[in-house]
Write a protein that binds this DNA or RNA. Structure first.
Lengths: 149, 149
DNA sequence: TTGTAATAAATGTATATACATTAAATACAT
DNA sequence: ATGTATTTAATGTATATACATTTATTACAA
């Protein structure tokens, strides 16, 4: 449905303002779905994302600031998300020997197991929830990469 | 820049999973910019959005639940956002005569003035921050409308 | 070597999201 | 007319975002 109808608003003044609203609205649509998907596993979307980052390094550790760099939301707070995941025993924290300011984070077996349980479900969700053809989704990816400049 | 490079991650398993991450990441890029833009006016992005909804009805009032329907984030909490705007004297709240469960919200002169001060700046921001041609931004809007199914 | 700057992580505070629950008012069936 | 269900807004709680500040450690220049 056209975004103007979904949020019952008058036509936009220009296509850029429309795109801004359209992107924010679509994000909300996606995050709402993701939240429901992850909920049975006791994870929020951002916690899931941090786990994926850690799995990408496994079995190597990664510091808190490197996690922050790779997070989808640059203004988020890796430190507190890691703490939440530690409480769920999905990550380990260890002081870094070479630089004691840093903290090495590693995903645990429980974390890896949770991710693998979610894997197929997530892929199916992504495909089903994004109502675009293969060609269209490629187009969208290209436009988004360009958008950010 | 390609999303894989920005968040330093391995190639995605499929284009849909990439699009999911790409959309979330782009949203964060946009909201970060918007936050900075609105900050001098003491508004958050969602507060700005609620003000725009109210201006769309002005001089008629609109109920809290109608605001919720038109918000970008359906899971948000119109009641609390309205309370914040009332504290800034940008909206008025009045019990609805026909149905005393409902509350009629109207934008104030101060709210309208704030929006008009922001208007040109917002349009410029949207255009400058989205690095796409007119044609590309139309394409993006069409893809997003279709994506949500 | 000593002082200053820079960096890493944690913490504090305000705002917002996600979702459940409550309280008041209204709708509606019996 | 009365009781039950529904609707509207507000509130409670956990999580996350945005941004400033603090603490500890390291880097580096005078």
């Amino acid at each position: 449905m056209k975004i103007e109808d979904e949020i019952k608003q008058k036509p936009f003044k220009d296509a850029y303002s429309k795109a801004m609203v359209n992107l924010l609205y679509t994000n909300s649509y996606l995050v709402t779905g993701q939240s429901r998907l992850f909920k049975p596993f006791g994870l929020s979307p951002e916690q899931y994302n941090v786990l994926r980052i850690l799995r990408g390094q496994h079995p190597d550790p990664i510091t808190v600031s490197s996690i922050q760099d790779r997070m989808l939301n640059k203004m988020s707070n890796a430190s507190r998300l890691v703490e939440k995941l530690k409480q769920k025993e999905m990550v380990q924290r260890k002081e870094c020997a070479e630089d004691r300011r840093q903290v090495d984070i590693t995903i645990t077996a429980k974390g890896l197991d949770t991710l693998s349980q979610l894997e197929n479900e997530v892929r199916k969700f992504n495909k089903d929830y994004i109502h675009l053809s293969e060609e269209e989704v490629d187009q969208l990816n290209n436009l988004l990469d360009k958008l950010r400049g």
